[in-house]
């Protein structure tokens, strides 16, 4: 919710935004009508990917940039399909 207010304010001031959040908070993106949202099927507290899962984290960043490029209206929500997976901290 806090980030939702920040995203709306930045967007209203004239700078595009994209929010990456976990599936459990999808209802927040919907009711706050956020400009652009990428939903990850990850548990709370791990929105970008598991610790040590650089590959997943990079794919989430790529998806967020894609949404910035492709969204044509506010309220755009893209839910990524891959489920959460543990990373490697080696």
């Amino acid at each position: 919710m806090s980030v939702g207010h920040v995203a709306r304010a930045i967007e209203e001031s004239g700078t595009p935004t994209v929010v990456v959040m976990v599936r459990a908070f999808r209802h927040v993106a919907e009711r706050m009508m956020l400009p652009r949202t990428v939903i990850t099927r990850h548990p709370m507290g791990r929105p970008v990917g598991a610790a040590g899962d650089a590959e997943r984290q990079a794919s989430v960043i790529q998806a967020a940039m894609d949404v910035l490029d492709r969204a044509v209206e506010g309220g755009t929500i893209v839910e990524l399909e891959p489920p959460f997976r543990p990373g490697s901290l080696d």
């Binding site: 919710m1 939702g4 207010h5 709306r8 967007e11 209203e12 004239g14 700078t15 595009p16 009711r31 706050m32 009508m33 956020l34 400009p35 940039m65 894609d66 910035l68 490029d69 969204a71 044509v72 209206e73 506010g74 309220g75």
Partner: peptide
């Protein structure tokens, strides 16, 4: 904290 409309500012250039 519920809104009816979404603000939207288009990108001026690609993210890249």
């Amino acid at each position: 904290h519920t809104y009816d409309t979404a603000p939207f500012t288009p990108m001026s250039m690609p993210a890249a």
